[in-house]
Design a binder for these strands. Structure first.
Length: 338
DNA sequence: AAGGCGGGGTG
DNA sequence: CACCCAGCCTT
């Protein structure tokens, strides 16, 4: 174990860490929202989303009482929309089962949807100033280098070692744990970066086993990547006599779950089968773009079809593109506004 | 073009 | 437990 680790880390954090992030010292609700947003997304991207979100839903009750549509609208562009659905669902549970107060208990926290062990640790320490241990990508990277942890860090054996180390390094007092948690994230983000780590500025350069061996770049071991299949999706934008576009809500499960988009299908004729009353072969080609998901690469082909709205009665929402308030996937927005 | 990011769900 | 799922940004 490294001598006086948390004390030295706290001194470093005080001088070089981040102290002005908009969710710092704003209470456990702000910590929670920010942690969920940060799960898949970088700090600089999250900041404007976080600020708009907190303005729209200032308290847990506001969030619980809001419609899923409005929550998703504030999430549109962040990706992984199940995060927003789980956040909304958990807010309702906190209101109904926990008197509108986020539980201060690890076991209760991880029962809430979207909150796992690491997010719960962040809420305890950063949000409440209680002892909590985190294990995010930054911490994983720092620990894998400090202690030369080989292999795929997502595997159970590495996870066990990482959690034990993270727990041992975390101070026992709540206030110290709060500083420690922020400091570990800052060290990983600012110094022990994935590429171009700045070991020269690291307070643990002499303690770091990977650095001693000149093998910092070998940790953490990159995960093997699978080839992503290619797909083509046709996006059929229906536009009525008032130049309004028809938006449909996507199924909650799956890609872009709960967001709104025009008809999407594998081909114009497949979409046409759903739209028996209109002849989609008159659709006019608008353009295309390629969008990469984590697991597949999609070629989006954009077509537009002028229709009479009475022919498409009963489904979706007609709105001018610029006035549509609900959540639209980022690449669909690009297509519609292109 | 490839890599990274945390948690949920299923078998 | 192992594996699959999911969207965007940075490098």
């Amino acid at each position: 174990m490294i001598e006086n680790f948390s004390e030295r880390l706290a001194i470093w954090q005080n001088q070089y860490g981040r102290h002005e992030l908009p969710w710092q010292r704003q209470g456990a609700y702000a910590t929670w929202v920010s942690e969920i947003m940060l799960q898949q997304t970088q700090v600089q991207v999250v900041i404007p989303y976080f600020q708009k979100f907190m303005k729209a839903f200032p308290t847990i009750s506001d969030l619980a009482n809001a419609s899923l549509d409005s929550v998703l609208a504030h999430w549109a562009g962040l990706g992984y929309y199940s995060r927003a659905r789980n956040l909304h669902k958990a807010a309702k549970t906190i209101v109904s089962d926990h008197h509108c107060e986020i539980p201060k208990d690890l076991g209760l926290l991880i029962q809430l949807p979207g909150i796992g062990r690491s997010t719960a640790g962040a809420i305890l320490s950063l949000g409440f100033g209680l002892r909590g241990v985190i294990q995010d990508g930054n911490v994983r990277r720092v620990l894998s280098r400090l202690f030369c942890i080989h292999g795929d860090l997502s595997k159970a054996t590495a996870q066990k070692i990482l959690w034990e180390l993270a727990d041992q390094l975390t101070p026992n007092s709540g206030p110290a744990a709060r500083i420690h948690t922020q400091a570990m994230m800052d060290l990983g983000s600012l110094v022990c970066r994935r590429s171009k780590p700045s070991c020269r500025r690291c307070p643990f350069a002499d303690d770091c086993q990977a650095n001693q061996r000149g093998e910092v770049s070998l940790f953490p071991r990159p995960k093997r990547v699978k080839q992503r299949p290619d797909e083509t999706w046709v996006v059929l934008q229906l536009e009525n006599e008032r130049d309004e576009t028809l938006f449909l809500q996507r199924p909650l499960e799956g890609i872009w779950g709960g967001l709104y988009a025009p008809h999407i299908g594998s081909s114009l004729s497949k979409i046409g089968e759903q739209l028996k009353t209109v002849d989609v072969l008159e659709a006019e080609y608008q353009g295309e773009l390629t969008h990469a998901f984590s697991h597949l690469k999609v070629h989006l082909e954009h077509y537009k079809l002028k229709v009479h709205s009475q022919d498409i009665a009963g489904i979706g929402v007609w709105q001018p593109i610029g006035r549509f308030q609900k959540g639209v996937p980022a690449p669909i927005n690009t297509l519609l506004n292109g």
